[in-house]
Amino acid sequence: MLLSNTEYIPGHAISRHLGLVQGSTVRAKHAGRDIMASLKNIVGGELKGYTELLNESRQEALDRMQEQARHMGANAVINIRFSTSNIAAGASEILAYGTAVVLEQRVPPVPAGH
């Protein structure tokens, strides 16, 4: 499945728009990560535990969005966006959404004389 944050994919024509697809996950912070994050706030630096958590969450949201698109018969999702929100104390949602489409490969024109 092709994924793009643009409105089209070069070299392909959109033959059908199937509609909005989305995938989300809600994750809670780990107490151990909170302790380490508090220490990092004092000395500075990347919060690697949170970076990993966010990367895993984004991938899970994308996977769920792609699965929904497959069920609709799509072979691509365009105009993909991410959104985050706090659900409860210590828990956040990551949402991936886009437009499910069916793409056709464009056939380049054959040069004259061939």
Rank of each mutant, 00 (worst) to 15 (best):
70 R>K: 15
67 E>M: 12
77 V>E: 01
19 G>R: 04
54 L>V: 11
32 G>I: 09
45 G>I: 02
18 L>G: 04
63 D>C: 04
26 V>G: 04
12 H>Q: 11
45 G>N: 05
17 H>D: 11
34 D>A: 10
12 H>A: 09
78 I>S: 01
50 Y>M: 08
61 A>F: 02
51 T>R: 10
96 A>N: 02
22 Q>E: 15
10 P>I: 03
49 G>L: 07
36 M>F: 08
111 P>A: 12
52 E>T: 14
42 I>R: 10
26 V>K: 03
15 S>Q: 13
86 N>F: 09
90 G>W: 08
11 G>F: 01
59 Q>E: 15
32 G>F: 07
20 L>V: 11
26 V>T: 09
20 L>H: 15
67 E>C: 04
16 R>L: 07
76 A>V: 06
19 G>P: 06
18 L>P: 07
63 D>T: 12
31 A>Y: 11
7 E>M: 03
65 M>F: 04
96 A>T: 02
66 Q>F: 02
78 I>Q: 00
43 V>C: 05
78 I>H: 00
30 H>K: 14
23 G>I: 02
1 M>Q: 08
5 N>I: 05
107 V>I: 13
106 R>K: 15
97 Y>L: 09
67 E>N: 13
76 A>K: 05
93 E>R: 11
17 H>V: 13
92 S>N: 11
2 L>I: 14
4 S>Y: 01
63 D>W: 06
33 R>I: 14
76 A>F: 03
85 S>P: 00
29 K>G: 12
33 R>P: 00
37 A>L: 11
2 L>T: 04
26 V>M: 02
22 Q>V: 06
83 S>C: 05
53 L>S: 12
5 N>K: 10
69 A>V: 09
101 V>T: 01
14 I>H: 00
74 A>V: 05
48 K>M: 12
76 A>G: 05
92 S>W: 13
101 V>A: 05
52 E>I: 15
72 M>C: 03
37 A>C: 09
33 R>Y: 13
20 L>C: 07
55 N>S: 14
113 G>K: 00
41 N>G: 11
49 G>C: 01
38 S>Q: 14
76 A>Y: 05
103 L>S: 03
79 N>T: 08
66 Q>C: 15
86 N>L: 12
15 S>R: 14
91 A>E: 15
85 S>A: 09
86 N>H: 11
3 L>F: 00
21 V>H: 02
84 T>K: 13
68 Q>E: 14
18 L>D: 05
13 A>W: 02
65 M>V: 02
20 L>M: 10
33 R>N: 13
60 E>R: 12
68 Q>K: 10
39 L>Q: 14
78 I>N: 03
96 A>C: 03
11 G>V: 02
99 T>H: 08
99 T>M: 12
91 A>V: 09
79 N>R: 08
102 V>M: 07
44 G>V: 08
81 R>L: 09
21 V>R: 06
75 N>A: 07
45 G>V: 04
68 Q>W: 00
60 E>K: 14
113 G>F: 01
58 R>Y: 13
69 A>W: 05
25 T>R: 08
44 G>L: 09
114 H>S: 15
44 G>W: 06
42 I>E: 13
112 A>Q: 11
38 S>V: 03
110 V>F: 01
69 A>E: 02
43 V>S: 13
23 G>V: 06
100 A>M: 06
30 H>A: 10
67 E>L: 14
71 H>T: 10
3 L>D: 02
93 E>K: 11
37 A>S: 15
85 S>I: 00
106 R>V: 13
103 L>K: 05
9 I>R: 03
